[in-house]
Design a binder for these strands. Structure first.
Lengths: 388, 388
DNA sequence: TCTCCCGACGTTAGCGCTAACATTCAGCGT
DNA sequence: ACGCTGAATGTTAGCGCTAACGTCGGGAGA
């Protein structure tokens, strides 16, 4: 890219942000922000000129151009690019120099056309604005880009067969090399089964099976950690606010809760279902505050726990003195709830990376059905204590 | 797709989730989840077979195949697909039938190769796990997919020139038709200016200028709403916890705060800077609780406000009785803080849609520099009241 | 010395699509 | 009847790349 010595490089090279911020002096703020705006304006104007210039100019260099410059055939250049063995060192270096000089970049479309691979993986997600899915997506993206893949996304507005079909068709149109599914929803898996994506599928968070690989955090184990912690502290009546039961994770967490209680010889009859939202946690919390049946509540995620805390606070139920609360996820905010929330941490980015690892092997070896499990971790904070 | 009548369709067609959930009965849970797993297993096994079958079978149909079946030339089929005018109604119908019968889908790579357009827009984002950016992304994705575009993402791990360069090169390799930048960070704009993406750029949240279009929520106006609300209630000492000042939005909000105070003849000297995190809000909150200089605090986002509330709670500062607090963003959880947070709502999805609108016109008409502004909205809840 | 082999290239033929040009034929005015 | 027009179609030539095969020369082995 034309980085002439007098280009915008100089302006931006200063590195640190140009805004010198001083506490307690609003004046500086205005001046600096204005200055920033002005600088941006100048730089951007130059960009605009650049753009119109290059746009009208010649097209991008191709293999042929590089070949000509290096004095070889285009095929030899191709070999260099693709790291084929039979190229002499001297030629390789000459070609690489030519590539660098011309700023050659290979044309993805042409390559895809002939190789029938798009170097793109599609990520099918829902609830992508939630903490968990969003971070999983980021983990996948990072691993994918590092592996030289493009990441295309399709967010599901609703978890319906139609929406899923539409998204998968979208990916098939793009002829993605693989599909990662971050829709921890059983309906999705069923819909996916009907379609025939024609590309390897890796599911985040499902039970693995022989056709699709899956990467998951051990939800049941997480629930066991949470409930085990409460049991250890001496709680005997431990309720659970579950997520919607068509979510695979919600089912697994409820299972872990139930199993742990039974193993400890306790009743697992205090079960309620929310919809993951703080609002639903609040509604259920109001009922719980009135009933006072449990001395501890294991909540399916941190957001519902937030709603629960709020309801308890309103009703004068003290946490953890009257009731202990454990969440699930460990969002960055959970440590700042009132009181700070004891919760189960899931390493979503690691999950995303593992997911991509599975995808890479699935695409290479064509094998499916492997499962990788990330261990959750209990984070103890102020919302739990021994019962009164 | 081979949806034979005896295929997996039957299994999945039941529509509702198979899990019949009953409050207070852990037994059902286990049984049902097991049942679900079993059903998935059966369906997925069939998928595995399908996959291996079709993978070994013939390749996908092309224009030529459709043409042959419809008794026309491949070019006529192309015309039908691209809605060219000069095709007779009869032929068009015949071709469409053939397309449907063969399940033809056009090859994106081949099309891109000749049209030099990839039908893909790249979204460059950072902090994509945060509420605002995540939802903006969703808005962009929805609008883009509806417009027939693919959405490729690149998340910035750090906001450095190198990372930005890398991401933009990534998009250039993919020859995206446009780049949406959701990095409300001035450094990004400078780095972007150096590079020459060779494709229209739309920035979310910047000041517009002649080379790039931008979609933004009127941050300053939002701050004015928030601070105006506090002033109206009779507060005279109103502090601000700003975001990092290399973020464009943070600067604008601080400006709005400052301007409003000055317009009301009040001092704008109570200014602190956080890093958007609840933790930084908490730290600043501890200092504020000790000083008690202000009767109201306008906080740069809801997460810092959460930390602030927590610090105040710990220190025995009552909200809103002793100090009023206003946030910014209106995350879904903010209504369940203790107390429920008065805050400024930003419609991020609308922002994303508008952003995509700009992109579409920029790609079509090649014009840049337009700006579209989304109005913020004040949401009054329990964290604000008149000073004591 | 001659063959054979193999590394280091070059040449050719598409991948599936669209733009541009070529062709056909009905309908029109003269 | 004649050409002329234009709608409806067909034909041709790539887009930039890679896989497959062709060629060439030099060293090893007989």
């Amino acid at each position: 890219m034309g980085s002439s010595p007098t280009g915008p490089t100089l302006l931006a090279k200063s590195g640190k942000s140009p805004v010198s911020w001083q506490q307690g002096t609003g004046d500086f703020l205005l001046a600096d922000s204005w200055d920033l705006g002005k600088r941006l304006f100048v730089v951007m104007r130059r960009v605009a000129q650049n753009n119109t210039m290059t746009k009208s100019n010649a097209r991008l260099p191709r293999l042929e151009d590089v070949a000509e410059r290096a004095g070889v055939s285009h095929q030899t250049v191709s070999r260099v690019i693709n790291n084929h063995p039979n190229v002499s060192k001297a030629t390789r270096e000459r070609v690489e120099a030519a590539i660098a000089e011309l700023g050659y970049r290979r044309n993805t479309a042409a390559r895809s056309l002939v190789t029938r691979r798009s170097q793109t993986i599609g990520v099918l997600g829902s609830e992508l604005s939630q903490y968990g899915p969003a971070n999983t997506l980021l983990g996948v993206e990072q691993a994918a880009r590092d592996a030289g893949y493009f990441v295309s996304i399709a967010a599901l507005r609703s978890v319906s067969r139609e929406a899923i079909f539409d998204a998968v068709r979208h990916f098939m149109d793009q002829s993605v090399d693989g599909i990662v599914v971050i829709v921890p929803h059983s309906e999705t898996l069923l819909a996916l089964a009907e379609l025939n994506p024609g590309a390897p599928v890796v599911v985040v968070g499902s039970l693995g099976n022989e056709s699709v690989s899956s990467a998951m955090v051990d939800q049941k184990r997480g629930a066991e950690l949470a409930v085990g912690h409460l049991v250890e502290q001496g709680h005997r009546r431990i309720g659970h606010i579950a997520g919607p039961q068509d979510w695979i994770d919600a089912v697994a967490r409820a299972e872990g809760w139930s199993d742990t209680l039974r193993a400890a010889g306790l009743d697992d009859d205090l079960l309620m279902e929310g919809d993951w939202s703080a609002g639903s946690g609040y509604e259920i919390g109001r009922k719980l505050a009135a009933e006072r049946a449990a001395t501890a509540i294991f909540v399916g995620n941190d957001q519902m726990a937030l709603g629960l805390l709020r309801a308890f606070n309103e009703a004068g139920v003290r946490v953890p003195d009257d009731v202990s609360v454990v969440g699930f996820d460990d969002q960055p905010e959970s440590g700042y709830f009132i009181p700070p929330l004891t919760t189960v941490r899931q390493d979503f980015e690691e999950l995303g990376r593992r997911c991509m690892d599975l995808m890479l092997t699935a695409m290479r070896d064509g094998e499916g059905g492997s499962v990788t499990v990330v261990e959750p971790e209990l984070v103890v904070r102020g919302s739990t204590s021994a019962p009164a």
